[in-house]
């Protein structure tokens, strides 16, 4: 008789029913889309410009780098991990990559292919930091949130240090080659490159998560790591890869951001830590692991970006934006906890 499972059996006594509609809404993938529409509708009378074509295009272009990072975060969240280091990867990749291509560092100027070398540097930074996070979590048994918090602090500091050491003004790498800047700013037939890059990342991520062996493994690990291990899933390797992918996505996003801003800067991404985790979670990717889709992350990113734009149009100061963002993330986490409770009860 397995007495250990019994207390939960007992807790499963018929609970009082809540209104079904609220429950279904809470569990729905489209909740956050509905919230987005609601938000726009509420703001419309106050700032009519929120519903214009120009605003929408602006939001769309601005959200692409965030979308790419958040997709990487989705991989880590699915295995019940968290990657708080993404902003520092953005910053470090930005300055290291930029230093390859400009006079301030100019490490790859002589190579003849500075842009390619620069992009390789971006990607390498992302992969290496991701690998470090993954190995610390899986091989050394350190909690993911504190490992990534530490790498966050280290590489944020490193980016500043690197910039101060290599640039004249000590604050950023300017004068990036025009063809690199084009990645972040250019358009093909009116469609920004960045949209294309984000679409490709999204497509690949979706394919990997929903259609490949590796994707299935990630969900299995998030749902029950012990059952996964017993079923022959290489748990440690897969979790490490999830962190590497998160690093890679942050690096790609860094390319887009850096191109958009035309400078490699160590403060890149300083403000978006909450947006990264928050957009995935509010979209429906659980902090407890095992569930989440790329489309959910997309909805979450859309929501946060629209909220951001709305606050901007309202002319709110930084303080309020901070506070509201924090509240939104808290709301996302609360919704996640409520959803989980519903699932466990059902």
């Amino acid at each position: 008789m397995s007495t250990t499972t019994l207390p939960t059996e007992r807790a499963a006594e018929p609970a009082r029913r809540r209104p079904r509609i609220a429950e279904r809404l809470l569990m729905s993938e489209y909740l956050v889309l509905a919230l987005t529409v609601l938000y726009v509708l509420i703001l419309w009378p106050i700032v009519p410009s929120i519903a214009t074509r120009a605003t929408m295009l602006d939001v769309l272009a601005a959200m692409m780098p965030l979308l790419v990072v958040a997709i990487g975060q989705t991989f880590v969240l699915i295995v019940a991990g968290i990657d708080l280091s993404a902003p520092s990867i953005l910053a470090t990749a930005s300055v290291v990559g930029a230093s390859m291509m400009t006079d301030d560092g100019g490490f790859a100027l002589a190579s003849g292919i500075p842009i390619l070398a620069g992009i390789v540097a971006f990607v390498a930074v992302g992969l290496l930091i991701g690998l470090f996070n993954g190995l610390c979590t899986t091989r050394l048994g350190m909690p993911a949130f504190i490992v990534t918090l530490t790498t966050m602090m280290f590489f944020s500091g490193f980016a500043l240090f690197y910039t101060a050491a290599l640039t004249d003004d000590g604050s950023s790498f300017g004068d990036l080659p025009a063809s690199f800047v084009a990645i972040g700013q250019g358009t093909v037939a009116g469609v920004p490159y960045s949209l294309g890059v984000a679409a490709v990342v999204m497509g690949v991520a979706h394919l990997v998560l929903s259609r490949t062996v590796f994707g299935r493994w990630l969900y299995a690990i998030g749902r029950n790591p012990r059952a996964a291990a017993i079923s022959g899933v290489p748990v440690r390797r897969a979790v490490t890869w999830a962190f590497v992918i998160s690093g890679l996505c942050a690096a790609i996003a860094s390319v887009l951001y850096t191109g958009r801003l035309e400078t490699g800067t160590p403060v890149l991404g300083q403000r978006i830590l909450l947006d990264i985790v928050g957009s995935a979670v509010i979209g429906g990717v659980s902090l407890f692991g095992g569930t989440g889709k790329v489309t959910q992350t997309l909805y979450g990113v859309l929501f946060l970006s629209v909220v951001d734009k709305g606050l901007q149009l309202l002319g709110l100061d930084l303080a309020s934006v901070f506070a509201i963002k924090g509240l939104v993330i808290l709301l996302a986490a609360v919704l996640d906890a409520l959803r989980r409770r519903l699932i466990l009860r059902a």
Binding site: I82, V281, I324, G326, L327, L330, V334
Partner: peptide
């Protein structure tokens, strides 16, 4: 949030970190 709603502590306090800084900026008039 941690005990009543059972939201993980690190995410609660990460959020209140931002809310708190926002509030403080507001109180100090930036």
């Amino acid at each position: 949030f941690i005990t009543r709603l059972r939201v993980p502590a690190f995410i609660v306090t990460l959020s209140t970190l931002f809310v708190g800084r926002g509030l403080a900026l507001y109180f100090s008039g930036n």
